[in-house]
């Protein structure tokens, strides 16, 4: 008996994998059905559906990048402190002295790549007409995921707390004060008042909600940190699950109907 067979026949191996090695047709089916990570897939698939020049693989790459961002992001969270005192110096140290400081490079470039791949995924889905019935709603979920990807990137942009960060966020969040009705420089905000007192002011409008202060400051850093590391990833992870589930339920990966 070879070492490989000895391991595969052991009680420990069998307790983890629950099926023999996928050497024959039967067990290649069983492995997909019984493995938690593989059960996202169907057992069999149309071969043209996974041809690279057809599917571009961009949805899968986006998901991979999301996982890579999660792993590098968690590692960065062990090091980085979202305070005015430490944020910038921590990033500086990640660049110059910290072991595995390259995690920040991977995290940032992965984020840019994810924005691009999510666009390209949408591009492919549109160009193959894969949003058409019965996949309409999954397209809608996809658009929400696209927005959340941009918001993840946007909230993360602030965290290094350098000039690039705060001014990009300042420019971006200045839009919020022009929100119709809800921004203190938006059309129609005067309509929201009680007994002559404006409800929408500098300290109660949409921009204040976003920043947690009148200007981009420590409150904003904290707010964006929570959004970036906890709130948005949770929503994204849930929506990804639904997105994948719907792919299976709506007829599998796209193919000519």
């Amino acid at each position: 008996m070879s070492v490989g067979d000895y391991i595969r026949e052991s009680q420990i191996w069998k307790s983890i994998f629950r099926h023999p090695a996928p050497y024959d047709r039967r067990n290649r089916i069983v492995v997909v059905l019984t493995n938690f990570f593989l059960h996202l897939h169907p057992v069999s698939i149309k071969q043209n559906g996974i041809a690279l020049s057809y599917t571009w693989c961009m949805g899968g790459i986006t998901f991979f990048l999301f996982l890579a961002e999660t792993i590098t992001g968690v590692l960065l969270m062990f090091y980085y402190r979202p305070t005015l005192e430490w944020a910038f110096t921590d990033i500086l140290a990640l660049r110059d002295v910290t072991t595995l400081g390259i995690m920040r490079e991977i995290h940032r470039w992965g984020a840019h790549a994810m924005v691009i791949t999510v666009w390209l995924h949408m591009y492919r889905v549109f160009l193959t007409g894969s949003y058409k019935p019965p996949r309409e709603f999954n397209w809608v979920i996809g658009v929400i995921l696209l927005v959340l990807t941009l918001l993840l990137s946007f909230t993360g942009y602030l965290l290094p707390w350098d000039q690039l960060a705060i001014w990009a966020i300042t420019v971006g969040s200045n839009m919020a004060r022009a929100t119709p009705f809800l921004g203190h420089e938006g059309p129609g905000y005067q309509l929201l008042n009680l007994g002559g007192y404006d409800l929408i002011t500098k300290v109660s409008d949409a921009r204040f909600l976003l920043l947690g202060a009148r200007e981009v400051g420590e409150e904003t850093l904290n707010r964006f940190y929570i959004l970036h590391c906890v709130a948005i990833p949770l929503v994204v992870a849930s929506l990804i699950a639904i997105h994948f589930w719907r792919v299976r339920k709506d007829g599998g990966i796209s193919q000519p109907l």
């Binding site: 071969q47 043209n48 057809y54």
Partner: peptide, 17 residues
Amino acid sequence: PKESENNEKILVWPDLV
């Protein structure tokens, strides 16, 4: 369309994974 031609079903293990 070309996508409908020779569109056999294949097993996810090993071809996709």
